[in-house]
Write a protein that binds this DNA or RNA. Structure first.
Lengths: 242, 242
DNA sequence: GCATAAGCGGTTATCGATAATCGTTGACGC
DNA sequence: GCGTCAACGATTATCGATAACCGCTTATGC
């Protein structure tokens, strides 16, 4: 076991894994002392990791009451798409200027997505989907924009989202829908490219809205649709399309 | 001295004050043990406060090397405007639906801004400027959008920005420029309102670009233009228009 | 019976001390 | 003179222990 530096970082990664894999469910308490004991370390690094995860919005804490895995409700999942749409529209516009340096990476990502989609490997699909979008953000060159987009924790949400999407609408060609973006980048028109990006994001937002039924649920129960891999109830929702 | 709960929160507020007031300058080291000793407390709450401030982007840390006040360079100041523009355009669009409940608050904010502007009170002006924009974000009702906007730490930047702006272009009617937004909200056209918001933000971005001279500086020296209040070298920049 | 208060278990928040790590300084060999 | 390396001082990262606090249960007074 390689003892890499900064214990709290390791703790964070492990806890993040636990949450993403569903070993901790939304609402579950994260007791500092218990985690510390289980990992054979002191309370401090655990505490620090938890605070980091609060900043990442995976965890919420109440003073003197401790940390819990944050619930991501239906409203939040849907609310994110308009925000992504406008940020990624801007990214698309800016990325045109530097597109040449990133086209290869983008094509690679689509290739991986296509294979993962065929194989039914949602985790890999999500990975490369996020990678594709992140590449365009990077190509935009606007550091603030990149960090703002990162703060949305897209990777964490995408896996869950795609699980829902694929089991509800398996006919949608997730990988193929990214080609128009590459074409727009090649064409070199910033406005057009921004529009394509916006539409791409909005389309997925609309699909998700359809899956959730569009009703605004007030209460929520922990549930999810089938996953090929692990139990991932990171999203709690009421309505679930069959 | 009222001993409010959560020491680390108090520490954070005090350090934030110190940074905003320029008692710590960009690049200054923030040594945990020294701060702890000065405040008569232990290292833990100081450390926690610093980590919080990293999440807020006021501070940066390198593992095993400690924390420093983050430098905000010219590039970052300028990069933020396109991001704000697209976020606030969206906010403007969404806010129309709930505008009625917030018009009073918005008018109050403009009133305060007008008075503060006449009095040359930049701090108060910045406060109500941010408040105005935040109100529109709130009116949008999209929690993700609100949190994303908050993550840009607008309030911290606005004071500095307005200091620069007012001493470089004192003729600009900062308060008055907000009236078109209220009018657009009253008119009830989401698209139009979004455009007005976007233009409003972009205008200030353009003015700032002009102040900075538009050149992309590589190295930076800690400097700033005059302030009526405290020394606030939160921004470091090379070019400074007279 | 009900409201209030004291006690308790569990957990967080803070402390003081120690181990690990970094940058620098200065001795040493060539 | 100059590069290498050991030792040092400063600081962070982690530890183990304790104090402060919350929610709940149980006892107490009316």
């Amino acid at each position: 076991m390689i003892q890499r530096v900064i214990l709290s970082e390791q703790v964070k990664e492990e806890l993040l894994d636990d949450i993403m894999a569903g070993r901790y469910k939304p609402g579950d308490r994260l007791v500092e002392s218990q985690i510390a004991k289980r990992m054979g370390i002191s309370q401090s690094p655990v505490r620090e990791a938890l605070r980091d995860m609060v900043a990442m919005r995976f965890v919420e804490v109440e003073p003197h009451k401790g940390a819990r895995v944050r619930r991501i409700d239906q409203r939040e999942v849907l609310e994110i798409y308009p925000v992504r749409a406008c940020l990624e529209e801007l990214a698309g516009q800016l990325a045109v200027a530097n597109a040449a340096d990133y086209l290869g990476e983008l094509e690679t990502a689509i290739g991986h997505m296509t294979r993962a989609f065929s194989a039914g490997d949602v985790r890999t699909l999500a990975h490369w989907d996020v990678r594709f979008h992140r590449t365009i953000l990077t190509a935009s060159g606007n550091q603030i924009l990149i960090e703002t987009w990162n703060s949305l924790m897209i990777e964490a949400r995408t896996f869950v989202t795609l699980n829902n999407l694929i089991s509800s609408a398996p006919e949608i060609d997730l990988a193929g829908r990214h080609y128009p973006i590459i074409e727009a980048l090649r064409a070199g028109d910033p406005i057009k490219c921004g529009q394509v990006m916006r539409r791409h994001v909005e389309e997925f937002g609309d699909v998700m809205k359809g899956i959730f039924g569009g009703g605004g649920g007030s209460e929520n129960m922990s549930s999810h649709v089938a996953s090929d891999d692990a139990d991932v109830p990171l999203v709690t929702t009421e309505a679930q399309a069959g």
